[in-house]
Design a protein around this nucleic acid. Structure first.
Length: 258
DNA sequence: ATCTATTCCTGGCTGC
DNA sequence: TGCAGCCAGGAATAGA
């Protein structure tokens, strides 16, 4: 499932391939992709920039911005082979950009400025300072895992990296009222794990691949996610799995005390 | 206002 | 072997 590191990997591969290219045609095959909103007219317009905003991929044009969210199984493929799950296809000068999405959780949104659901997101965890992160966290109540998954708190974290960051920071996923000191430790671990994951091309858990169909390798470095019943890499205790806010949650009961 | 549960979607897995 | 039934989960939405 594409989270911040996976989306960053995609953007880094996509940007040099389509920036400055002109759209010759754009087709949206599945109505769900735009969630009923009118499809933008992209033909004749040039891609000005490709950036990441949380888990969204922003394609900026001279007349607006297309925000792409990959959901669970969305893929952006350059010149790939069409599949039964092709939801949109952009023909550009020099290449084709295919949006493939088995489960159709992915979506696109168009705005002359910035789509509202994108504009309202919180700060990027790689940009916010440890002090600001800790201060923001002080204002939130509720379980730490739920707070971190809230894209209005920080944008880009998903189930995998929240579990992994909490383990590295030694914080129980159900913990509440994190102290300022521990919040700064958590911030450091979040930044570190995101940067490591980006360096590994992301985690390929289900069917994540980048624009060239390449898998990431960070799943091999996971310490808790998907490791229920296996020994903690730090202390050997069996990794436990519970459900928090409808999300499978993995943690070490010894390393991560309440 | 804030928090929680539900909904969408389908390949893959489990168990009979 | 076949197949019904369940599971994964991001975020919009409905409900409490």
């Amino acid at each position: 499932m594409p989270e911040l590191p996976e989306v960053e990997t995609i953007v880094r591969a996509l940007a040099p391939r389509i920036t400055g290219r002109r759209v010759l045609s754009a087709e949206f095959f599945a109505p769900r992709v735009m969630r009923g909103a009118p499809e933008p007219d992209l033909a004749g317009h040039t891609v000005q920039s490709v950036t990441r905003h949380g888990k969204h991929i922003l394609l900026k044009f001279d007349h607006g911005t297309l925000a792409i969210h990959l959901g669970m199984t969305g893929k952006l493929l350059i010149d790939g082979d069409p599949t039964p799950y092709l939801r949109a296809e952009f023909v550009l000068t020099g290449c084709r950009l295919l949006f493939d999405d088995i489960r159709q959780f992915g979506r696109m949104a168009w705005s002359q400025t910035l789509p509202e659901n994108v504009a309202r997101l919180g700060p990027d965890p790689l940009e916010i300072s440890a002090q600001d992160f800790a201060a923001r966290l002080q204002e939130k109540r509720g379980r730490i895992k739920t707070v971190l998954l809230n894209q209005a708190f920080v944008r880009g974290l998903g189930n995998i990296y929240v579990d992994e960051a909490l383990h590295r920071a030694g914080i129980h996923p159900l913990a509440e009222g994190i102290t300022k000191k521990r919040a700064q430790i958590l911030h450091r671990e979040i930044v570190e794990i995101l940067e490591q994951a980006i360096a590994s091309g992301g985690s390929s858990i289900s069917d994540y691949v980048d624009t060239e169909g390449r898998k990431g390798s960070f799943q091999d470095s996971h310490r808790v996610y998907g490791r229920e019943g296996e020994p903690c890499r730090a202390c050997g205790t069996e990794i436990q799995r519970i459900v928090v806010t409808q999300r499978g949650t993995h943690f070490c009961p010894k390393c991560q005390r309440m």
